[in-house]
Amino acid sequence: TYYTVKSGDTLNKIAAQYGVSVANLRSWSGISGDLIFVGQKLIVKKG
């Protein structure tokens, strides 16, 4: 599943919304830090 980052989103908010960890969200999407951008597509795998 892809999630497109919206204004005001954080990795914590997105992870909580999908019931996954921030570490997994980073790993799946190839992100090393906490910086995400509006319009960026993140990969989300539901448990």
Rank of each mutant, 00 (worst) to 15 (best):
Y18R: 03
I14S: 00
G39M: 03
T4L: 10
K13D: 12
K13F: 10
G39D: 05
I14C: 01
T4A: 07
K41I: 15
K6Q: 13
V38M: 07
L35V: 14
G8Y: 05
K41L: 14
I31Y: 05
R26D: 01
T4V: 15
N24F: 08
G39N: 06
D34K: 07
V5D: 01
V22L: 09
Q40I: 06
A23I: 10
G19V: 05
I14K: 00
V38C: 08
V38W: 04
I31N: 03
D34A: 08
I31A: 04
K45C: 14
K45D: 11
G30D: 10
G8M: 05
L11P: 02
T4H: 08
R26V: 11
S21E: 08
K13R: 10
G30Q: 10
D9M: 02
Y3L: 04
K6E: 08
L42H: 01
I36M: 05
R26K: 15
G33I: 07
L35G: 11
G8S: 05
G30M: 08
D9A: 01
I43C: 13
A16V: 11
K41T: 12
K41C: 13
G8N: 06
D34F: 09
G19K: 10
L35Y: 14
Q17C: 13
V5A: 04
Y2L: 10
K45N: 12
N12I: 15
V20H: 02
V22M: 08
S21Y: 04
S32T: 14
A16M: 12
V5C: 06
D34M: 09
L35N: 14
L25S: 00
G30R: 08
G8V: 02
G30E: 09
T1P: 10
K46E: 13
V22I: 11
T1E: 14
L25E: 00
Y3P: 00
K45H: 13
W28A: 06
G19P: 01
S29E: 02
S7D: 14
G19T: 05
V44R: 01
L42Q: 00
D34Q: 08
N24H: 10
L25A: 00
Q40G: 03
I43Q: 10
L42K: 01
S7P: 15
V5N: 01
T10F: 04
Q17V: 12
I36L: 12
T10C: 06
G33H: 08
L25T: 00
Y18C: 09
I31E: 02
K45T: 11
K13E: 10
S32R: 10
S7V: 15
N12A: 15
A15Y: 02
V44C: 05
G8K: 05
L42D: 00
L11N: 00
Y3H: 12
S32Y: 10
T10A: 04
D34N: 11
V44F: 06
L35T: 14
I36A: 03
K46P: 15
K6A: 09
